[in-house]
C-alpha cells in the first residue's frame, strides 16, 4: 500500500510566549495509506482538530514535518494552496461557510479556485452534489433557504467538488437527526468506496467510527495514544476510558458477556456482528428457533 500522509514528530503550541501558551499537539508520528478510511477519536480539547488542520497546511506545525505523497508540505510555503486542494477539509458545522447566491455557485467556489471551468466544473459540481445526496433542484436555490441538513450537504459537496485525494471530515454528523446521520454516513462510505480516496473521519460517536473505519486514531491530551485497526482499538476499553472515551455499547455488552464466561470473540463492533455471534449460542441453548 502506498503511504499518502506521513507525520514526523509533529507538535503545535498555541500563543507561544504569551500567558495563554498551550501545547495542543505533542510529538505525533504516524503514516496514513492511500485509500484508507481512518476514524479519529478523542476527548474535547485532545488536539484532534488542531492535528487535522495541520494536514492541509491551515496550521503550520511548531515542530516536525507533515509529508504529503513523500514531500514536506511546507517546503515551499507559497505553494501551500496546492496542498489545500489535495487535502480537502470539511470543518465542524460547515454550513456557516456558505456565502453565494445559489447552492450551485457555492459548490463552484472550491473547484473554481483550483482552476476548473466550463464542462469540467459543471461535472465536478453535479457529481459532488450527487455524492452528498443533494437534489438537483436545490442547486438553483439560495443556500440560506435550505434546511440545516441540506446546508450541511451543500457545504460538504463544496469540498468534495475540488476532488481532493484526502478528505478530512470534522464531525460531519454533529447536530443532525438520527436519520440524517445515518444517511450522511453511508454517503461518505459510498464516496470512499467509489473514489478509492483516503478519508479521515473525526467523530464523537463511537458507533459510527466502529462501523465504518479501517483504522482508528485515538488522541489524548495532544498525544497520539493509539493508532490501530478498529477491532484492536475497541478491545482496549480500559485504555480508551483513560482517554475519556467509551467503546460502542454493543462492544461493551459483548465484553461483559465474555467476562461472564460466554464464548464470544473480543472486539465485536456492530449489532449485526453481535447477532451473528450470539444466534448459534442461543440456538444451542434452545432459546432461539
Amino acid at each position: 500500500m502506498n503511504c499518502i500522509l506521513e507525520l514526523k514528530n509533529v507538535g503545535f503550541v498555541y500563543g507561544r510566549g504569551t500567558p495563554f501558551e498551550k501545547r495542543a499537539v505533542d510529538n505525533v508520528n504516524l503514516t496514513i495509506n492511500e485509500g484508507e478510511l481512518i476514524g479519529v477519536i478523542g476527548h474535547t480539547g485532545s488536539g484532534k482538530s488542531t492535528l487535522m488542520q495541520m494536514l492541509n497546511g491551515l496550521i503550520r506545525p511548531s515542530d516536525g514535518q507533515v509529508l504529503l505523497g513523500g514531500k514536506d508540505i511546507w517546503a515551499e510555503p507559497k505553494k501551500i494552496r496546492e496542498v489545500r486542494f489535495r487535502v480537502g477539509m470539511v470543518f465542524q458545522y460547515p454550513e456557516y461557510q456558505l456565502f453565494e447566491e445559489t447552492v450551485y455557485k457555492d459548490i463552484c467556489f472550491g473547484p473554481q479556485n483550483r482552476g476548473l471551468s466550463g464542462k469540467e466544473l459543471d461535472e465536478a459540481v453535479r457529481k459532488a452534489a450527487d455524492f452528498t445526496g443533494l437534489k438537483p433542484e436545490l442547486l438553483e436555490k439560495s443556500p440560506f433557504d435550505l434546511s440545516g441538513g441540506e446546508k450541511r450537504r451543500a457545504a460538504i459537496a463544496g469540498v468534495i467538488a475540488m476532488n481532493p485525494e484526502v478528505l478530512v471530515l470534522d464531525e460531519p454528523t454533529a447536530g443532525l437527526d438520527p436519520m440524517g446521520r445515518e444517511v450522511l454516513l453511508s454517503q461518505i462510505v459510498r464516496y470512499h468506496k467509489e473514489r478509492h480516496n483516503t478519508v479521515l473521519l473525526v467523530s464523537h460517536t463511537m458507533e459510527d467510527v466502529a462501523r465504518v473505519a479501517d483504522r482508528v486514531l485515538v488522541m489524548n491530551r495532544g498525544r497520539l495514544s493509539m493508532f490501530a485497526p478498529t477491532k484492536e482499538v475497541f478491545s482496549h476499553a480500559d485504555e480508551l476510558e483513560k482517554s475519556g472515551l467509551k467503546v460502542p455499547q454493543i462492544t461493551k455488552i459483548m465484553q461483559d458477556l465474555r467476562r461472564q464466561g460466554f464464548d464470544v470473540p473480543e472486539g465485536v463492533l456492530t449489532v449485526d456482528e453481535a447477532f451473528e455471534v450470539l444466534a448459534p449460542i442461543l440456538k444451542k441453548e434452545g432459546k432461539l428457533w
Binding site: 489545500r84 467556489f109 472550491g110 475540488m162
Partner: peptide, 13 residues
C-alpha cells in the same frame, strides 16, 4: 478566524 480557515481550505486566496 474559523470562516477564514474554512474558505482557505476551499482554496480562497
Amino acid at each position: 478566524d474559523k470562516i477564514m480557515q474554512a474558505q482557505k481550505a476551499r482554496g480562497a486566496d
